[in-house]
């Protein structure tokens, strides 16, 4: 694939995540394997398919009652399975950044936007106040905020949702990570704003050569935005293909999902309903 020439950024082999509940053991992720190079990989699936949990496991951010197992979970030279919490602190937000759905909950409400972005610079990379401010302003410009000086001094409640998400992205990119995990980064945004945010992520990934894991439930979006797509169902990857070939997906589940989407150009009296085949769980 795209990354075949070089060593992958991320290797996931046979990842499983289980939860204990009063009723039974819930298997959220069952034997997921994939690699990520300097490319955009989309993980699509419905709620409960384990896509978000997979993203969290990469950062060791699974809930305390989750049992995570994997034959291999490697980020560059780091063995994530064996990594301690201290090791992870040096990885999270520095070498792997996570962009979440709602910026409003992720920004500190009583701190100026610019100062929050400056905080994201690792201490060993800071070079004086004036230089830091300049770095932040550059970054704000990079996420296409047109008046960085003004936005620097605003508080999170004074900016719109779309701009909040761009500020989040600026924060995440400040430490110059090698990899981004975006968990439904645009689902709280309006369609027109969504396109801008995606364009920024797209630009940065391409220009800086990052690896991106893009978690989404929007098939259309992933098909048009990513390079490769993994389709998850009930904790497993049932299909993986080039994004451009998603429309010709082979697996019945993927086909069913695509058929259940309403489309503007083609009017049907009824939408196709997905008939879940129990065999999908095991095959």
């Amino acid at each position: 694939m795209v990354a075949a020439a070089e060593a992958p950024l991320l290797t996931v082999e046979d990842l499983s995540i289980r939860f204990l509940t009063p009723h039974r053991i819930v298997e959220a992720v069952r034997g997921v394997s994939f690699t990520l190079g300097r490319e955009k990989v989309g993980i699509v699936g419905e709620s409960g398919s384990g896509k978000s949990m997979t993203g969290r496991a990469i950062l060791k951010l699974t809930p305390a009652n989750a049992m995570v197992e994997a034959r291999a979970l490697r980020f560059q030279e780091l063995d994530i399975m064996a990594a301690t919490e201290r090791d992870m602190l040096r990885v999270r937000g520095r070498r792997i950044s996570l962009i979440l759905q709602d910026p409003k909950f992720s920004l500190d409400p009583i701190m100026r936007v610019g100062d929050q972005i400056a905080e994201a610079i690792p201490p060993d990379k800071r070079e004086g106040k004036a230089r830091t401010r300049e770095c932040v302003l550059e970054m704000l410009a990079a996420v296409r905020i047109h008046n960085p000086r003004r936005v620097y001094d605003l508080y999170p409640h004074e900016i719109s949702g779309g701009m909040g998400q761009r500020v989040m992205i600026a924060m995440m990119l400040m430490p110059e990570p090698a990899m981004l995990i975006a968990d439904k980064p645009t689902s709280a945004l309006d369609v027109t704003v969504r396109m801008q945010v995606l364009a920024i992520i797209d630009d940065l990934v391409t220009r800086r050569g990052l690896g991106l894991v893009f978690i989404s439930h929007d098939l259309n979006l992933v098909a048009t935005f990513c390079d490769r797509v993994l389709i998850m169902y009930a904790g497993r990857i049932v299909e993986s293909c080039k994004a451009s070939e998603l429309r010709h997906a082979r697996h019945a589940y993927t086909q069913g999902l695509l058929a259940s989407l309403p489309r503007i150009a083609e009017r049907r009296p009824r939408l196709a309903v997905l008939n879940r085949d129990p065999a999908w769980l095991t095959e």
Partner: peptide, 12 residues
């Protein structure tokens, strides 16, 4: 209709 690099850049 989905993401379109060219249009997204223009929208910005």
């Amino acid at each position: 209709l989905g993401y379109d690099r060219r249009l997204a850049a223009a929208a910005t």
